[in-house]
Amino acid sequence: MKRNRKGGYHTLAREKGAKGKESRLRLLHAAAKQFATHGFYTTKVSSIVAEAKLSQPAFYLYFESKDAVFEELVEMFRSRLQAVINDSQLPEQNGAKHSALDQLCHTLQSMFEYFYSHPDLTRIGFYLSPDANEIKLELVQGIEKMLRHEQQNSNFASDIPMNLVSECLVGTIERIVFTQLLPGRITPEELAVNIVRLYVSGLARNQSKV
């Protein structure tokens, strides 16, 4: 899948009022469904426009190619996931901070709710994209930063390598999201609580329950 010369994720969108925005969104949603269901190489522009109930000329009005719409969907997943993680900080209550376990559980639940609410984007960005490993590495780094902060505050054992814990967490997330969350076998809240109990309660000095 090719990128433009600047390495960005741009489309040739030429929106013309509300109707143009609606058509572009319909194409994005249709493309996400087709890519998630059939994969990148099997999906054709003709199947995307058929799903969106638009014409091929309409597709090329907003997107340069199949590659372009796929790359935009990947970047959409990536940026929204990062925003979810950045915005997941629990607010203080009456000047008191939440526990490390509550914060991690809330962050994971927010992330799982995003995955669950956007299954097509998740399949594309987290599994199908050539950038999937890079996206997961960014997730590892974000989780490691959070865990190291709590470790420095003496909430987790000081002799545990948090880079290894973060890698294990993301490996678990990758598998469990695919086999349990997206098929609807477990809720985002249940998954977050179970993962925190499995990993973090074993690391905490005080065996707190979520």
Rank of each mutant, 00 (worst) to 15 (best):
194 N>L: 06
103 Q>N: 09
27 L>T: 14
91 P>R: 02
125 G>Q: 01
118 H>P: 14
200 V>T: 13
15 E>G: 00
61 L>S: 06
128 L>P: 02
4 N>F: 06
40 F>W: 00
203 L>M: 12
15 E>L: 03
26 R>G: 15
182 L>R: 02
26 R>D: 13
148 R>T: 09
193 V>A: 08
111 M>I: 11
72 E>A: 05
65 S>N: 08
105 C>T: 07
62 Y>N: 13
156 F>G: 01
33 K>G: 10
174 E>D: 14
196 V>F: 02
38 H>I: 03
66 K>W: 07
52 A>I: 05
163 N>K: 11
171 G>D: 07
158 S>D: 10
178 F>W: 10
204 A>R: 04
54 L>N: 03
128 L>R: 00
29 H>W: 12
113 E>Q: 04
70 F>S: 02
59 F>N: 03
82 Q>F: 05
24 R>V: 03
8 G>A: 10
194 N>K: 07
104 L>Y: 03
28 L>P: 08
117 S>W: 01
14 R>I: 13
59 F>S: 00
126 F>E: 15
91 P>H: 02
159 D>G: 07
161 P>F: 04
200 V>P: 05
6 K>N: 11
180 Q>R: 14
191 L>N: 01
62 Y>R: 12
174 E>H: 13
103 Q>D: 10
53 K>H: 08
120 D>R: 02
27 L>K: 09
108 L>N: 06
74 V>E: 08
201 S>K: 09
120 D>S: 08
131 D>T: 04
145 K>S: 13
44 K>Y: 06
54 L>S: 02
62 Y>A: 13
20 G>A: 08
49 V>G: 08
199 Y>V: 15
162 M>N: 06
8 G>I: 07
135 I>N: 02
123 R>E: 15
100 A>I: 09
193 V>P: 09
59 F>Q: 00
123 R>V: 11
44 K>N: 07
84 V>W: 06
3 R>V: 05
126 F>D: 14
152 Q>P: 08
12 L>F: 10
169 L>W: 00
166 S>T: 12
41 Y>I: 09
70 F>C: 00
162 M>Y: 05
190 E>D: 11
125 G>V: 00
165 V>P: 05
209 K>E: 10
